[in-house]
């Protein structure tokens, strides 16, 4: 190894700007915040869906009970059927197509 060249090359000052570490820490914090948002979403999404599903199911039960108490039957409400005459049903089918 050429000592003189080595000495000259090493004489040069190699350094980054004064706030080098701060800039990296800022970027790392930004990265962690993004990670937090994503992980938070993935954790809360099933919980949110569970609540929606439970509320929806409860609403259906209530509607069926109301229909049952008002009409004495909830199946026709559930299937969307009414007591209609055959003529009305045919007319409804023809005129709606």
């Amino acid at each position: 190894m050429d000592e003189k060249i080595n000495k000259i090359i090493k004489q040069k000052d190699y350094s980054f700007s004064p706030y080098f570490a701060d800039k990296i820490i800022d970027k790392v914090n930004e990265l962690n915040n993004k990670r937090f948002v994503f992980s938070d979403l993935f954790i809360s999404l099933p919980l949110l869906l569970k609540r929606v599903y439970l509320l929806g199911f409860a609403a259906i039960i209530i509607l069926l009970l109301v229909a049952y108490f008002l009409q004495g039957d909830f199946l026709s409400t559930y299937f969307g059927l009414e007591n209609v005459s055959t003529d009305d049903l045919i007319a409804y089918t023809i005129y709606n197509f």
């Binding site: 190699y14 350094s15 570490a21 820490i25």
Partner: peptide
């Protein structure tokens, strides 16, 4: 603990700059 990362940076900043 990100403050520990700051120590890593301080320790190797010069080496990486070179």
């Amino acid at each position: 603990d990100n403050s520990a990362f700051r120590y890593i940076i301080a320790r190797y900043e010069g080496q990486i700059a070179r």
